[in-house]
Design a protein around this nucleic acid. Sequence first.
RNA 1: GGAAGGGUGGCUGAGUGGUUGAAGGCACCUGACUCGAAAUCAGGCCUAGGAGCAAUCCUAGCGUGGGUUCAAAUCCCACCCCUUCCGCCA
Length: 435
Amino acid sequence: MLDIKMIRDQTDLVKNRLASRHAGDEAKIDEILALDDQRRTALTEVEQLKATRNKVSKEIGALMGQKKIAEADAKKAETKQIGDRISELDKTVESTESARNSKMLEIPNLPNEKVKIGKTAEDNPEIRVHGNKLDYSFKPKTHVELCEKLKLIDFARAAKISGSGYLLYTGWGARLERALIQFLLDLHTTEHGYTEVSPPFMVKAECMEGVGQFPKFKDQYYGIAVGDDTKELGKLYLIPTAETPVANIHREEILKESELPIYYCAYTPCFRGEAGAAGVGTRGMIRVHQFDKVELIKITKPEHGYEELEKLVTNAEKVLQLLGLHYRVIQLCTGDMGFASALTYDIEVWSPGQDQYLEVSSCSNCEDFQSRRMSLRYKTEAGENKFPHILNGSGTALARLFVSLIETHQQPDGSINIPAALQPYLKADKIPCPA
RNA sequence: GGAAGGGUGGCUGAGUGGUUGAAGGCACCUGACUCGAAAUCAGGCCUAGGAGCAAUCCUAGCGUGGGUUCAAAUCCCACCCCUUCCGCCA
């Protein structure tokens, strides 16, 4: 969330930057300020009353010690009334504070000043392109055709057991998925210096809130119940990305400056309701309710946040380079950025079968937006507590990577060539096409 | 799920309802002593919110949330977590 002090002191700046997202959030700022003002008025008064009560209570203690019971009783009567007023004001402070905080949780992050002002994905600037679209001597098949022909995925039976939007990997398909996970984790841990973690796949609501998924996008995620116990429903949620558990690892901690930067990478499945997205690009593996992903997370000092983001993007790109895939890097404009992000690069890999680019990685610096929400700080050498920058990036999403990989490397005979970097993991140099 | 025990500052560990934000110790920081270090001595050393230009002051916090009281780490209630044992289980 945003710093309430910044909202107070630089109101116009905050409003302008929010307005650049074209989401109408700037209108909520005045409501927040009004509540904040009410809260502080009540707080100032109640704190003065409490100071008085504390003082008198001590005097009562002293009088009791001297056995001056009558005088003590007189003072008790005096503070009794103060007590009533205090509990009244305490309620005001609490209600205005909680109303203010709820509203603040719905305000997205401010775009960094480097971000291009724009409204939609049309306005996203392209940063760089790697490789180019291959010319095929035959009409390239789509990944759906390839998966069916090579029996990599059984779409029909996945739908039978779980409904639409789920994948049943089979045979070479399952092996390829597993090989990719292993390849990605090895790359990031041994080449890029990340520490591998394997987190829970279910988290508390406060973790969802910590990274910005709650409260605004609650209807996008799966809540878990034990059996039919509805009391349990809503206590835990299936993670939509490893970012959720991993970014929260150090929540409510004060790290030492010397511990930063922290680099984590994690493989997890990701669960997304995709509410409202039905029918939009839902063919095959492009948009599903469950997919695998290797995620990269960094916790850094604010002054290093952006150079670390550049490195993170490079780390994700390395995956695509090693797999021989054509891709481009774009920067999201203000109107297209996610809720928590201050600056985001998307990496889109080319899919010959779809004849379009597919987003396989989104790398963001959320600055201190998430660390404030989860109360993660670090102590500087000077003894000051500061909020670190939290960065996340896919390194990369698997389902779409799978799509691009098999479509790109398909051969005229229907088989799929495996790039050299992946061969040791799959223990094969091609996936054969059954007759 | 059942039984017992336990949750106090970075760690350890006291705490009869009333100068206890919290003794003592350890660790850490600053200064003194020293050529330097160790030892010793003096001081400092949590977090959040609010007022103030500032120095500083005030409020809150002893697992969490309620309650009793003029006053709660201390009494009452509920919940959470940890340890051990039992049950169940991949």
